[in-house]
Every structure is written in structure tokens, then in C-alpha cells.
């Protein structure tokens, strides 16, 4: 149970931190505090910057779901 909790916590924190970093960067790009490529106005961020987000997003969301449905150890002595 403790291991499962730790896994979910770590994955969840990674997801939240990554998302926050991207949202902050989006804000910086959009306000032109950070420069970005001219023609990617709608894209908001340069192309090479994009891949880590979906990678983290995909693995984090899948792992969270897997961890959440892993059956926990049955307590000893528990009877139906």
C-alpha cells in the first residue's frame, strides 16, 4: 500500500510540476517575455520544445491509471 501511494504521489507530482512549467512558459512566450519563432503565433512555443509535454503527459496519465487499479494486498484475516 505504501509503495503504491508513493508511486502515485511521485507520478502525480511530476505531472503537476511539468504542467505548471509549461503553463508558465506559455505565458512567457505569449507575452513575448521569451522570444519564439515568428510564424508560430498560434503554436505559442517553438516546435522543438513541444515533445516533452506529451511524453510526460502520456506516461504520467497511463501510469497513474495503472497504479490506481493495482489491487492492494488483502489484509490478513479479512473475510468476505
Amino acid at each position: 500500500m505504501k509503495k503504491k501511494k508513493t508511486l502515485i504521489t511521485v507520478t502525480g507530482v511530476i505531472a503537476v510540476v511539468t504542467a505548471i512549467i509549461y503553463l508558465v512558459l506559455l505565458l512567457l512566450f505569449e507575452t513575448e517575455t521569451l522570444p519564439y519563432d515568428q510564424t508560430e503565433t498560434l503554436l505559442l512555443v517553438p516546435g522543438y520544445f513541444l515533445l516533452p509535454l506529451p511524453l510526460v503527459g502520456f506516461f504520467a496519465s497511463v501510469l497513474l491509471q495503472i497504479f490506481s487499479v493495482i489491487p492492494t494486498k488483502k489484509r490478513s484475516g479479512k473475510k468476505k
Partner: peptide, 20 residues
């Protein structure tokens, strides 16, 4: 998409932590 994706990821992480 580039706005939705981090937002969704943020909500996913937050809700899982909340459930936990």
C-alpha cells in the same frame, strides 16, 4: 492544444493526488 495539454495534465495530477 498546447494550452489544453498542460491544463489537462495539471488537473490529472491534482485529482489523483486529491483522491490519494
Amino acid at each position: 492544444l498546447h494550452l489544453f495539454l498542460p491544463l489537462l495534465l495539471l488537473l490529472t495530477g491534482l485529482f489523483y493526488l486529491l483522491v490519494l
